[in-house]
Nucleic acid binder design. Sequence first.
DNA 1: TGCGAATGCGGAG
DNA 2: TCCGCCTTCGCAG
Length: 272
Amino acid sequence: MPEGHTIHRLAARHRALFAGRAVRVASPQGRFAAGAARLDGLTLIDTEAYGKHLFHHFEGAATLHVHLGLYGKFADGEPPVPAPVGQVRMRMADERHWLELRGPTACEVLDPGLVAALRARLGQDPLRDDADPRIAYARIATATRPLFALLMDQAIVAGCGLIYANEVLFRAGLPPTIPGRLIGAQRWDELWSDLRALMKEGVLSGRIDTVHTAHTPEAMRRAPRVDRHGGEVYVYRRPGQPCLVCGTPIARGPLAGRNLYWCPACQASAAG
DNA sequence: TGCGAATGCGGAG
DNA sequence: TCCGCCTTCGCAG
């Protein structure tokens, strides 16, 4: 779930449900008691996604900040609220809808200064119109770290997660371990554009599908391989299986503490 | 029934 | 670089 496209979808969903309305906010689990007490009864002004971070801006300049982490999940619906399953960190509701949050890494109320500080340490979000890929490239162009690690660095590219990082590198034909400083400006522009297109498609469809999102002609006639998340991917979680383009077994290895997947043949060249 | 892994991240070492 | 955390799910036993 939680790559940037998911958070942008949630921001839009929560805006549609609650923006402009006074909401009840509760802490069924007890771990969000102080925050819930501060927000309860206030009007939600607007919602916003920045990378993998979700913000609910309330009247009075209080902002609810949520980061789902690896396990966090939202659910919503119309009354009545269903019987509780597991631990509910936060519940938000008005007379028309309820919203529940479970298992997040972060669920806290922030003042404007802290929101600004948080945003300041995030890099460029491909899904935001105010993103500037040249700011990200300034970091890429001087980096000795692998390009894969740079894409995963939220201080450089905000919102790109493991699946998008693996898949965009495959689509670019770039070896994941290539140092950032070997990536030319034009190559970076192409990579950024492709990542942005993939993530925008993800926002629209609610799933990551890197095979059927506009790519090369030969890519469009691959046998579909549906993964657990409901999308179709070239390399992510396909170790040992044949590359959809050339048939070479997909390789897998740890990099920067994460699972890296790549086609040794299609991504062998460092040219570009 | 219990274990490990999972789209993430931060802190300790 | 490793570990712990939070929760859910699939699979082995």
